[in-house]
Design a protein around this nucleic acid. Structure first.
Lengths: 199, 199
DNA sequence: ATTTACCTACTGAGTACTCGGTAGGTATCG
DNA sequence: CGATACCTACCGAGTACTCAGTAGGTAAAT
């Protein structure tokens, strides 16, 4: 039966390991394109060369697939634990080069406010966490009262709002919105500093 | 013509007119609760006491129902053509009392960036329009260069972003986010004025 | 008589998910 | 070495359901 040596041995006897990751990558794509409700397991499965039933072998339900995908992304994104306002602009710049990831978060975070959505608590917790983290960074550098005239907490809420709102506008009109520029402008408003490209 | 005096004559011979409006109101509710993909015509129909097919008599497809709903809302919302920054805070305050409407816009505007979504162009156009309108208002009052140090165009983009981003956070945590306060703070940052409740 | 306002009945496609398998790999035991 | 046992990695076929949309009717109002 010509046991071949190079081909990664697809099908039955295939080694495990990366299979779940492949599925999670495909799931991110599909959820980005269609949201959770609009996505189908069959589409995700097809994209990794599996049947829908094969996919369910790895993730026993659509909900668990979504949660696993979100958890993995959170894990990857939590690398830069602490970053200064200047670094924030770099993060935004990187995001502008990965529209898929921006779209997944934008679509799912909004969809998750609908009834009985499986990612509801995930995003509620995420927002609270990011707000707190931003506030801590701002407070550390500028104290409780920012130069622009708002508190660190208020500033954090506004900063998170601006970033999410910009992503939404950017996804609708990529050529008209420059996310890094706008975020830099927002930081300038709040801190008074000329944070990157300040005039 | 008062053949009957009180009963609104339900069923077959029912007068038209308000029926479409009832449906559009229900559609707003259901789309807010579930998004476009998650919503079903049957749910909307049930809520106005119709069968799904009865509903399709008035709106021949789900897409057309969505578009009609969005058009009607836009019509209602375009009442205050021009408003100053101070009035903007009032608009936000009113929104905070109508979570359903906020949720419809938040969910649909994000969902509409997915593939082949029927409201895609609607929201793209809406964003561009609101940005332009805000910029004009800011420019009229403060000139091309706002006191806070950003241009009127940039300020408009940021203002829209903040409002949408705040809505998203507010829907996830209504008790932690005060939208009018935060919008007022944002306006203070941009204009320097103490626009309502400025400290 | 025609139009309006529905309803019953139906279709075909799609949904998540289950059940029962099978092909192959690996470990254990004799 | 070889047989037995068990595990992983799937797939085919089906279940039960929901979906948007169609066809054709009936009853009331004009």
């Amino acid at each position: 039966m010509a046991s071949n040596e190079e081909t990664p041995r697809r099908g039955r006897g295939r080694p495990p390991g990366n299979r779940r990751d492949e599925i999670l990558r495909a799931a991110l794509e599909v959820f980005a394109e269609s949201g959770f409700n609009g996505a189908s397991l069959a589409t995700v499965a097809e994209r990794v060369g599996l049947t829908q039933q094969g996919l369910l072998h790895y993730f026993p339900s659509k909900q668990q697939l979504l949660v696993a995908m979100l958890d993995k992304r959170d894990e990857l994104d939590r690398q830069p634990q602490r970053f200064s306002p200047e670094e924030l602009v770099n993060v935004v710049q990187r995001n502008a080069e990965r529209p898929g990831i921006v779209q997944v978060y934008t679509v799912l975070s909004a969809e998750s406010v609908t009834e009985n959505h499986p990612a509801r608590e995930h995003f509620a917790a995420r927002f609270a966490d990011v707000r707190q983290r931003f506030a801590a960074i701002l407070r550390e550098k500028y104290g409780d009262h920012l130069p622009g005239g708002v508190s660190a907490d208020e500033g954090a809420t506004l900063l998170v709002a601006v970033m999410d709102g910009l992503q939404l506008q950017w996804l609708h009109a990529p050529d008209e919105i420059d996310m890094p520029d706008s975020v830099a402008a927002m930081l300038r408003l709040m801190t008074g500093d000329s944070v990157l490209s300040g005039e």
